[in-house]
């Protein structure tokens, strides 16, 4: 997961050091949230460039281990977004995912993972605005938490 798109923003006053920018992996359902992201782009809505999108066929396709593994590889936050309940392209993929993720989020936070590192949402293909707002909120949350270190594997 080498960072090929490091944001070159700088904090005012410390021009030499690039400010830390969170890196967030978003698993987006092909049928809704991914299209929602497309719509946000086509509509020229502004949202933070901290998200790397991985397109999946359904939120139900996201193995909980993908989320933990992403944190191990050094991302600062993970977002999973699928179709609103009732709108799944495969009828019930997101409903099964909903049970899986409520358990995962609760379990990880029980163990002591910082609340907010892992987030879940629903965005439909027509909700470009909601997508932009969601990314803004998730980026803000994770920026507040700072770099994720808890599960990250450090080789040095």
């Amino acid at each position: 997961m080498a960072d090929t798109h490091t944001t070159k923003q700088t904090v005012a006053g410390t021009e030499s050091a690039p400010a830390w920018e969170p890196r967030i992996v978003a698993f987006l359902c092909n049928w809704c949230s991914y299209a929602g992201a497309d719509l946000a782009g086509v509509s020229r809505l502004q949202y933070p460039a901290n998200v790397r999108v991985i397109r999946v066929p359904c939120s139900g396709r996201v193995n909980p281990m993908y989320i933990v593994k992403a944190l191990q590889l050094g991302v600062d936050g993970v977002l999973v977004s699928g179709c609103h309940p009732g709108d799944c392209h495969y009828i019930s993929g997101n409903l099964v995912a909903r049970r899986k993720f409520v358990m995962l989020k609760s379990f990880l936070e029980y163990l002591g993972l910082e609340p907010g590192r892992v987030q879940f949402s629903w965005v439909s293909a027509s909700e470009g605005g909601r997508f932009a707002d969601l990314i803004t909120k998730v980026s803000d949350d994770i920026r507040k938490l700072g770099p994720a270190k808890q599960i990250k594997k450090e080789l040095t």
């Binding site: 997961m1 450090e154 080789l155």
Partner: peptide
């Protein structure tokens, strides 16, 4: 052999 973030060991 392990590889994480461009580092290897």
């Amino acid at each position: 052999d392990e590889q994480v973030g461009g580092q290897n060991r």
